[in-house]
Structures are given as structure tokens and as C-alpha cells.
Amino acid sequence: MQPVNPQLTRRRFIKGVIASGAVAGTTSLWYAANGQSRPAGAVERMIRLNVNGQDRTVDVAPQETLAYTLRYKLGLTGTKLGCNRGECGACTVLVDDIPTYGCSVLTHSFKDGRIETVEGLEAPDGTLHPVQQGFVDALGPQCGYCTPGQVMAAVGLLRANPNPTREEARQGLAGNICRCGSYDSYLDGVMRAAEIG
């Protein structure tokens, strides 16, 4: 089987985990890590992020997670927090085309990165991205809370592998939990997206 995303190496993944280690451990730490008050350190707080093709200047605390910044600083609430500890994938966004758990990485790590969220997929005329359309055609979502993460994982998969087998799609989305159990319909949606994409 081909790797789902050749850019997502084990080394890079581990680097991400290390970077996020301070925030993924416990819930109480999460609240401390996402502190809105001024930090004691001298880390630059006003940083520029490229989100959905636009440069956004945002005040980011040193311990702030990417999901926190996106949701509560930039108002991009399509990125969901299901567990906030790297288990469920509802917060999946793309960083340089790689599916990334937004809850488990620090925003400061991506000052030079290209960040994409579910809000950035539609064409300016409102045409849905093929993955979004595939999910609509297959009625992939049930409750919908995990859907943005599933969409972004699928977009990342199809960029790396435009014509996956169903098994490759299953492996590619394996980091995203759907408690409704809509996996079969999401896989239908990915295969549909590959057709129309």
C-alpha cells in the first residue's frame, strides 16, 4: 500500500507531538496553555498566519494551540474540538497540505506554514470542494460534529493520492473518529470525491 501522505513522515509527526506536549496532556493544563492573559516571557505575540490563502495578523499566546487560535481568535468555528487531546481528529486542519490535529500543535509553530480550514474549501462562487460535494452526495455526515475534520483529512489524502482504493481511504481517515459510526458513508463520500475531483 502507498503511504497516505509521503510528506507526513514519522519524524515530522513526532516533532509535532513534542512541540505540543505541553498542551496535550491534561485538560487543566489545556486551560493554562490557552491562557488569554499576558505571558511572562518575551515571545513575540503578534504573528502573521496564512490561513485559507489570507495573511492574518493575530495575537497568540506562547502556549496557544492552533485550534484555539482558529476558533477563538479568528472566528473559524468550523474547526471543532471534540476531545482537545489528540484522540478524535475533529480539529483536523491542513498545514502545508498535511492533515494536522489543531488541538495538539502550537500556533507559534506555524508562522511560516500554509494553514487551511474547512471554511477555505468552497470556491468564491459557492461551489463546494469535491470532498464536500462527495460527502453531500453520499450523505456522509450524521451529527456533523466530526465532519469538518473528516473533510480536511480527506482533502489531505486526495492531494497526496488522488485515486485511492477504498482501503487506502480507510487508512487515510483512520485518525478521525465518528461516534455516529458513519465511516462507511464517509468512505463512500471520499470515493465519490475522487470520481468528481
Binding site: 468555528t77 468550523g78 471543532k80 474547512v118 450523505l139 456533523g144
Partner: peptide
């Protein structure tokens, strides 16, 4: 089959849950 009105909001992230 039909397209339920909320499914577009679910795939685009526009539909809002309580914490949004």
C-alpha cells in the same frame, strides 16, 4: 433521497453548535 437542508452547513463548517 434528498439533500437535508443542514448537510451543506455540516460539510462547510457553517452550521453552528452551542459552543460556536
Amino acid at each position: 433521497d434528498f439533500v437535508p437542508p443542514d448537510v451543506i452547513g455540516k460539510v462547510t463548517g457553517r452550521i453552528r453548535y452551542a459552543e460556536d
